[in-house]
Structure formats: C-alpha cells, structure tokens
C-alpha cells in the first residue's frame, strides 16, 4: 500500500510497519498505535484497514 506517514511517502504491507515500538497488542487493547488517520484523531491504527492513499500522522 502506498501511504503518507507524517508527511512522507511510504510503501508498506501493514500499518504495523509504520509504528515500530508502538504497535504492540494488535487487537485494540493497548492504545500504543494511536494515530491520526485521514484526519480522524485518536484512531487505534491496528483496527484500521490500511488503503492506498491513507494519511497517517503521529506528530504535528
């Protein structure tokens, strides 16, 4: 998938690859992977089905 992560173009097969050290429980319990996805704040990234063109932000 081609996505934008903190303003940079990245190509990944899973959102976990963008969040090393933060993606942890993988099932929405630990909130480690919380990010802004396509403008929506506080999304648990592990519960988001990544699509081409998604914009993921962990910093402003």
């Amino acid at each position: 998938m081609k996505v934008t992560f903190n303003g940079r173009d990245r190509e990944v097969s899973h959102v976990a690859e963008l969040l090393p050290g933060r993606f942890f429980c993988g099932i929405g319990v630990c909130f480690g992977c919380v990010a802004e996805i396509n403008g929506v704040p506080e999304v648990r990234a592990c519960r988001h089905q990544l699509r081409d063109g998604d914009e993921i932000r962990t910093q402003r």
Binding site: A16, F23, G26
Partner: peptide
C-alpha cells in the same frame, strides 16, 4: 521496536504479515 504480543503476531499472521 521488535517486541509485540503473541496475539498481535497471530492477528498479523492471519492477515499474511
């Protein structure tokens, strides 16, 4: 980086990752 729960690994594996 590089430490996740076994359940996370299982969930990822079920998505082929």
């Amino acid at each position: 980086p590089g430490v996740i729960t076994a359940g996370a690994a299982q969930a990822l594996a079920k998505q082929g990752v």
